[in-house]
């Protein structure tokens, strides 16, 4: 795998840090009047999702991480594993249920999403920004309240709970913004 020197650091570059693949979030170069330049770098650990900060002297190199982001179709889950398919190659990938905590409420079968592969193994999934979910449980709506002034919690078919306007009733499909977990309209 290639090595990258600090002068090649840029946002989004994927590097190996303490054994985990990480993505650069920010890279600040400092050059004191007397003395060596250094880089203060913020990373996102692609396995744990945590943000970390490290300082390097300029010129230091880190090993690149073999990380790819591919558009894949979500097929189904069997309770233990979630299955995805690369529509170009028809290759299928599985992710363990325990790694799906942040996203399982937004994955709808057949939807396209972005799967991150490290050394050809999937490590994370990003759902589309908006998904269509069906309301399976919520308090009865108030007839005539179409202005959407108030709100109430509604449980979706995927299990996620979203604040929706009062006029939404069970069985309706609503658009949800997966980045904010907010109601984004009716179909």
């Amino acid at each position: 795998m290639a090595y990258y020197s600090t002068s090649q650091f840029k946002n989004g570059l994927k590097l190996m840090l303490d054994g985990n693949p990480c993505s650069i979030i920010s890279n600040e170069i400092r050059k004191p009047g007397k003395g060596q330049a250094s880089n203060k770098v913020k990373f996102k650990d692609l396995i744990t999702g945590k943000t970390l900060e490290k300082t390097f002297k300029s010129g230091e190199s880190l090993e690149g991480a073999d990380v790819m982001e591919l558009d894949m179709q979500y097929l189904y889950n069997d309770g233990n594993e979630w299955n995805f398919m690369d529509p170009n190659t028809f290759d299928q990938f599985t992710i363990n249920d325990s790694n799906m905590d942040d996203v399982r409420g937004y994955l709808v079968e057949q939807d396209m999403c972005v799967v991150t592969l490290w050394n050809n193994n999937p490590i994370s999934v990003a759902p589309p920004n908006h998904v269509l979910l069906e309301v399976v449980d919520t308090d009865p709506g108030l007839k005539g309240d179409t202005a959407g002034t108030g709100g109430k919690p509604a449980t979706m078919n995927t299990g996620v709970v979203v604040q929706v306007p009062l006029f939404i009733s069970i069985g309706e499909k609503v658009k949800v913004d997966t980045r904010t977990n907010e109601y984004a309209g009716r179909t």
Binding site: R30, P32, K34, G35, Q36, S38, K40, T55, K57
Partner: peptide
């Protein structure tokens, strides 16, 4: 050592 002193001062 001075390079490390300078880095620690910077940070």
């Amino acid at each position: 050592i001075e390079d490390l002193q300078i880095l620690m001062f910077t940070d």
